[in-house]
Nucleic acid binder design. Structure first.
Length: 487
RNA sequence: GGUCCCAUCGUCUAGCGGUUAGGACACCGGCCUCUCACGUCGGUAACGCGGGUUCAAUUCCCGCUGGGAUCGCCA
């Protein structure tokens, strides 16, 4: 049977470095085995999925250079590759489970489930569905559903016994069925949850190996039960360790740049990024640290995966990138620069902002410096970061808070949205706009004098701004507190 | 808290019973050099703890500790 693997991102946000990481291992394994690499879009969350996000993810994955053999854009024999276009398939399969008594209709409301969870929390019981609707007769469920009553379909987990599956990297993993609750398979909007869609699609798309992140281990027994309920053979499971923040928690945008767009914007070459991700949890063998994608494919072996969650270290990534940069010819280097920020396209966006602040052409580059550089020298910004009459700590807190506030406009990173959001935030914090805007200006540009703040922020891009604001906040929060006056 | 996963320098890792525990990033020093960077040479730095098994444990087993994940009509 030919090896078929897949990467299945959910288009609910920015292209994630973890997606590229898992995609890399899927890709290398598939290509090493002469198999196929499939891209499937898991957009079953109607409220959060957006076509913009899907486009951004496809674009970023293309930048990274992992080419998929089948996917929503290129098609293939197992399409459609977008789950939102496969609704009928999931409903049909849910019906099969219903008929077989392996699933049941549940009419409990979100409110009741919320209360249930609250009660369980208070009583210090493990959270989970209490199975109320499982007691309903199938006929009654069918009748109420036919009458148009809103409901979901839940998996009827076996109440006894254990479910075992073999993880390629860890060996057999065993779970007690009684401790796994009845997962929702079909939501009340008729869309499937991940659990159903993933199992159905992996089977229909003839996926042979599910290579995904470790966070999925605990839901795998549910998937195994589903395969069994359908009478299908489950694929082989391979759970890769999770990328981590410096504090060893799962990598997150609060603590690390996580968007592939950030790395592209920082001038990390895609070949560097792939090489570096290949160093996370995997080793080439020998003392080899620098290798190309074809070399990694050639050498690929799951036996060389280590399971400790690797901390993603920007410092080492930058070092590796330097290696790649230095081996470029001058012309190739120049081409990279142009593709990065020195394209006509990018410079043309800077010109209108900067030309009126420039008297001579030789002032242009200095005035544009913060648009073309990475992290700022915060020690040099120093006191300017903190408005008069405000403390370092409170300014740090405010900057950290506005980073979260900007989350709400991530899909609409425009001057107008930035300004509206920032003004509202200032009011809410009881800060003068003047105070807040200056702190933002210095944190984002490193200067007290700059082109208009929101224009600058829009051009810098959300990744760059987020990073600089966070760094400034961390810097301020780490300042030694003023000593209380001596008595 | 329940369940599950994991555990070698600060970080990424090699090691798959017997090694002076190797390499890389970062850090420190030397060399190179007009400076810096690159390069190069050297240095500081790790097997979490306790029991077993064994002639011998970093390596195998168990417990503890520590870290992580997960417990959604998100994926």
């Amino acid at each position: 049977m030919p090896v078929r693997v897949r990467i299945a991102p959910s288009p609910t946000g920015d292209p994630h470095v973890g997606t590229a990481y898992i995609a890399l291992f899927n890709y290398c394994f598939a290509k090493h085995e002469g198999g196929s690499f499939v891209l499937r879009i898991e957009d079953t969350d109607r409220t959060r999925s957006t076509p913009e996000s899907e486009q951004a993810i496809l674009r970023a994955l293309r930048w990274v250079g992992l080419v998929w053999d089948e996917g929503p854009d290129v098609g293939g024999p197992f399409g459609p590759y977008r789950q939102s276009e496969r609704g009928e398939i999931y409903r049909r399969h849910a019906d099969v489970l219903l008929e077989r008594g392996r699933a049941y209709r549940c009419f409990c409301t979100a409110e009741r489930l919320g209360e249930l969870r609250e009660d369980q929390k208070l009583a210090k019981l493990p959270p989970g569905y209490d199975g109320r609707c499982r007691k309903l007769a199938a006929e009654e469920g069918a009748a109420r559903a036919a009458a148009g009553e809103v409901h979901v379909v839940r998996l009827a987990m076996p109440r006894e016994g254990t479910t075992v599956f073999t993880d390629r990297l860890r060996g057999p993993l065993e779970f007690e069925n009684a401790k796994i609750d009845d997962q929702v398979l079909l939501k009340s909007d008729g869309f499937p949850t991940y659990h159903l869609a993933n199992v159905v699609d992996d089977h229909l798309m003839e996926i042979t190996h599910v290579i995904r992140a470790e966070e999925w281990i605990s839901s795998t027994p549910k998937h195994v039960v589903l395969y069994d309920a359908f009478g299908w053979q489950a694929p082989e499971f391979v759970h890769m360790p999770l990328l981590r923040n410096a504090d060893r928690s799962k990598i997150s945008k609060r603590k690390n740049p996580v968007s592939l767009d950030y790395y592209e914007g920082a001038g990390i070459l895609s070949e560097t990024l792939l090489n570096f991700l290949g160093l996370m949890g995997w080793s080439f063998g020998g003392d080899r640290e620098k290798f190309t994608l074809p070399e990694m494919i050639e050498a690929f072996d799951f036996a060389r995966v280590s399971l400790g969650g690797p901390v993603f270290d920007l410092e080492k990534l930058s070092w590796l990138n330097g290696l790649y940069l230095r081996e470029l010819s001058d012309d190739a280097f120049l081409a990279r620069l142009r593709a990065w920020r020195l394209s006509d396209e990018h410079l043309r966006r800077l010109v209108p902002l900067l030309r009126e602040r420039v008297r001579r052409l030789d002032e242009f580059i200095p005035s544009a410096e913060f648009f073309l550089s990475g992290d700022l020298d915060l020690a040099r910004c120093g006191v300017n970061l903190v408005p008069k009459g405000r403390g370092a700590k409170e300014t740090g807190t405010v900057l950290a808070a506005i980073v979260d506030e900007y989350e709400t406009i991530r899909g609409n990173w425009t001057v107008a949205a930035l300004e509206a959001c920032s003004r509202a935030f200032a009011e809410q914090q009881a800060w003068k706009t003047k105070e807040l805007f200056m702190a933002l200006r210095v944190a984002a540009t490193g200067r007290t004098m700059s082109p208009p703040l929101f224009e600058s922020m829009e051009l810098l891009g959300k990744e760059q701004v987020r990073r600089r604001l966070r760094l400034a906040a961390d810097f301020l929060l780490a300042q030694p507190q003023p000593q209380p006056p001596k008595a």
